[in-house]
Design a protein around this nucleic acid. Structure first.
Lengths: 350, 350
DNA sequence: CTGTTAGCGCTTTCAT
DNA sequence: ATGAAAGCGCTAACAG
């Protein structure tokens, strides 16, 4: 329960008293054992054992020390997302790697969408933050910024004062879009949310200026270029916006698209999860891939290779590690991360 | 970097001074806004803005408050394991769910195997701990216990003073082993580590008393019963111990087993990851499943269903949630979690 | 090697 | 509605 840390712990002063030494000797016993005589050390440890002293109080210590030895991780989405989404998991693993290497803990902060989220960020005992993709106007960003602690944002927004680590989403979308839409006459996009409220819609020629989610915006811009390259007007390209990044929703949306009056013959998705949902929908409808439908994903998670999915490869793990290193290490430059397109069997040969 | 939190932050006292109010008024402005006049509030906020005051210092606050609003998670393994292993991920997701619900952060502590691990556990600013499977003698357990904070251990060890959440591993192993070994004449086991150093060995009739890892020990005991049920002497059952819980190593080990002079016709593994490796090995050798080889896994991760793997189903997610609830909520009873055997196509019909 | 002094930054009394 | 005092538990900085 919440109060346990402060409950009836013995204090260093009590230990010192019982041991018959000064508080500092007791403190040294824990922090600088070499500066304490064998004898004093023994007395302190004995006293500690007798009182059930659990060691220096962590909060008191970090107050004194001025650092917490923990890195905060903020997911724009609900907390469990971190573990449910494979791309997020890879990103987290990269952060974890760096934290482990430096002896830092990694504190995942609970984001629920409620107003208190900001308070929790402010109150988190961490030395810096890594923030995972959000909208430009995410309240979370303001909260992180307000802490004035070093912070790195992944992917999304360009925020004054926050270092940013990301791939060039527009260029990558353009590149994978070229494959997705090659020889297509009716290209479509299955998109991640464009803004906080505009989910679950199917429209044509989405206005890019409307897209609050920068990652989505950049990718749409790339897909647009790719579509126009094939001679299709962006105003004719159907964009289906999913609320969540999961297989099931994408499958539903894709089924709707593919059974409509003018079914697309190519779908560029924004995640492998979504693309897998599209493939499933196509399979259920008896469509051949890439014959009837070309499909592309994003991230190159392990399942993408198994499914023969053409996709954008990026190492979210490396990006996570980079974010953590910057947040902990005080570098100050934003970095553009590497990416590549992996052509597999879900797209038409060009 | 480590020192940033304590760097040159403005303090509440400075803000109060600049605002021309007492420190308490400034404090109330942040914690009990309703007790402060509109005017005072305005002055404080203005002063804060001018000084770039980032809000109350988290460590100072939790020192005062006596709680940190964070739950510590200790993985007996290397930190990144938490994100690399699907079973661990499910477990973590359950913890995350409960933390989010209560507004707690979740701090994953870096375990590297070095001696400092214990210090980091002691020094972690968390109100309680959840520990993920280890050996009985894991130094990590002693460190957690020494903090005297509420702690829950998952799966493995029975430790005096730590609440334990687990399924009945012996019973479950017995049940799935019955399926694995049905009609088998040469049953074998692909095992997780038996003890800290005994990895990568292939032996017959492992002495259960040797097994320091309680989860492994219990499962071996169950498999033993199942093997003996079919009339096979435990001393004849080959047990291959893998160092790591991954597909690749299991595949290697299984290949060795299956190409030996007396290849097994049934393999009970200790995780789905391992079982998938075994299936891969069988496939590569042109063996039919379950005709030539019956295989069972453990955990029932999503990939198990896809592979038609007979396995033990348990909800690691629920178990994670239960652990977190106990660690945060002060319940005191160990709990036996539910499990079931899911019969699929990788075992012979009985 | 050991001890004294002086806070780290904040908030809980208990006044006013 | 506001404030003064006291101290949460610990350790850096200096003596001795």
């Amino acid at each position: 329960m919440a109060g346990t840390l402060g409950a009836k712990r013995a204090t260093l002063a009590q230990v010192a008293e019982l041991a018959g030494v000064s508080v500092m000797t007791a403190s040294y016993t824990y922090n600088r054992p070499e500066r304490v005589s064998e004898q004093a050390r023994g007395k302190v440890l004995a006293a500690a054992a007798e009182l059930g002293y659990a060691g220096p109080h962590p909060s008191a210590r970090s107050l004194r020390r001025g650092s917490t030895l923990a890195l905060g991780v903020v997911l724009g989405e609900h907390l469990t997302y971190a573990f449910d989404d494979p791309a997020a998991v890879a990103f987290m693993a990269g952060i974890a790697e760096v934290c482990a290497e430096r002896g830092f803990g990694m504190t995942i902060l609970p984001i629920t969408g409620a107003v208190e989220d900001a308070d929790r960020i402010a109150d988190a005992a961490v030395d810096g933050f890594v923030v995972w993709t959000t909208t430009d106007d995410d309240p979370t960003l303001a909260a992180v910024l307000a802490t004035r602690r070093p912070a790195v944002i992944h992917g999304g927004s360009r925020v004054e004062g926050l270092v940013r680590v990301s791939i060039d989403n527009r260029a990558a979308a353009r590149a994978v879009g070229d494959l997705a839409f090659a020889g297509s006459r009716r290209p479509a996009v299955v998109s991640q949310p464009v803004s906080r409220d505009r989910a679950g819609t199917i429209t044509r020629g989405v206005d890019l200026a409307d897209a609050l989610f920068p990652v989505t915006r950049d990718r749409l811009a790339g897909y647009r270029e790719a579509a126009e390259e094939t001679g299709t007007d962006w105003a004719d390209v159907v964009v289906a916006v999913c609320a969540r990044n999961d297989v099931a929703e994408a499958e539903r949306v894709a089924t709707a698209l593919l059974t409509s009056a003018e079914p697309p013959d190519a779908i560029a998705a924004m995640s492998d999860q979504q693309a897998l949902g599209v493939l499933r929908a196509a399979g259920a409808l008896g469509l051949t891939v890439p014959g009837d439908l070309a499909v592309t994903g994003w991230d190159d998670v392990p399942a993408a290779a198994q499914a023969g999915l053409t996709t954008v490869h990026q190492s979210l793990r490396d990006q996570g590690a980079t974010c953590a290193r910057i947040a902990l290490g005080g570098r100050h430059r934003s970095r553009s991360a590497p990416w590549s397109v992996v052509a597999r069997s879900s797209t038409r040969r060009t």
